[in-house]
Design a protein around this nucleic acid. Structure first.
Lengths: 216, 216
DNA sequence: GCCTGTGAAGCTATTCACAGCT
DNA sequence: AGCTGTGAATAGCTTCACAGGC
């Protein structure tokens, strides 16, 4: 049924398409052609059509894609029907910013608990989210059936936190710590390394732009 | 002399290698083999060797790479000799976290000024960095010869800020706003879209890990 | 005519595999 | 023996180009 493995890049673009389309819906637009969506997404029309093949929604040659229907199909493809809780470990400056960033943004994908082992932070409530001590991590994660974790601790603690997450049944990690994590092959890690990103930008700002630097 | 265009991924890994090597130096290690560095970086030994080809530093078959020399070569390749100032626009939660994240981290790559048009924020000093009004953006950027900009404003303002940056002579953008930016082809954009990243993680947490989900 | 869906081609990135060195 | 550097092979991703539909 699921044809094969779908690439991380494709999933990323589908997520982007959905966001763009939801924005369009709010403006009253009803339908869209692949080349229009491509312009908004910063890619080619062929890319859009190729990506949409995997979700199984098919457009009409003379009206393009019905935006509402396409958003629904993307949701059916991307979202967990029962919603997907997330936990965050590391309530420093960055952790707090992430908490506020995701607070109330996508109802299907919310941070249900945050953890830190600084006693000054434990039990405080930030952005509507309570800070728990790390000791209660595994039990809370299992109770709430959480499978996605966000790591915003310093590099030195990141591998330990990742191990704890894996041990607690988490299958996907969003890692802000600037080191690669070692995890079992059935766990997915997405690294968001700001230092690397900034050094890349600095390099290409100096050495010529390379045209296509988008979308990782 | 510069052989051809070097891929964004290669530059990202070189930046990572350097950071790992600097950490090793602190532990007193003197030399390293490609397969050891590969393990730390989460890639293959062939990848490491291939990447290092572009920096022109060459190791010895029986001692591997001299760590200190390699770090120097990476610096010569990646860094701007006179240091690279950076500016940030958008001093919200995320902007503040980024300011603190980069504060004092890499001396060659510092945020020299931040901008916001909220009068409540202007002239305050956050993380040793003064907040300026957007009106003074172009003059400050040109005065300080800045070529790298960081965008941490809401999606609705991001394109306008990007335009201002490009107009002011900036050639590389690190974009945290969750929309693609339109810029001239000689300007490099690196997108760090946290929403997309989290949706990817949620997808693969549910639908199987795909093994290689690292490094964008 | 201009669109979609898609096989096939083209391109980019990674890995293989081995000559050469020590 | 075990490493580096690198041409050649492979795998993965994107674009081309066209058949089919409205």
């Amino acid at each position: 049924m699921k044809p094969a493995t779908i690439s991380s890049k494709t999933i990323g673009r589908l997520s982007l398409y959905r966001r763009l389309l939801m924005g369009l819906l709010a403006t009253g637009a009803k339908s869209i052609f692949s080349h229009q969506l491509a312009t908004k997404a910063g890619c080619t029309a062929a890319q859009v059509r190729r990506d949409l093949m995997v979700v199984g929604y098919t457009g009409s040659p003379n009206r393009g894609y019905d935006i509402l229907e396409l958003v629904k199909s993307l949701g059916a493809f991307l979202d967990d029907p029962r919603g997907e809780g997330t936990v965050l470990v590391g309530v420093g400056n960055l952790g707090r910013a992430i908490l506020s960033y995701f607070s109330g943004r996508r109802p299907k994908l919310t941070i249900v608990a945050a953890f830190d082992n600084d006693p000054m932070k434990v039990n405080r409530i930030i952005q509507g989210c309570r800070i728990h001590p790390l000791e209660s991590f595994e039990s809370l994660v299992r109770e709430n059936d959480v499978h996605v974790g966000i790591i915003t601790v310093p590099a030195s603690d990141a591998q330990g936190v990742a191990d704890l997450m894996v041990r607690s049944g988490i299958h996907g990690l969003l890692n802000f710590a600037p080191i690669p994590l070692r995890v079992p092959p059935n766990v997915y890690v997405e690294d968001l390394d700001m230092t690397m990103a900034l050094e890349k930008v600095a390099y290409f700002a100096r050495n010529g732009a390379l045209e296509k630097g988008d979308l990782k």
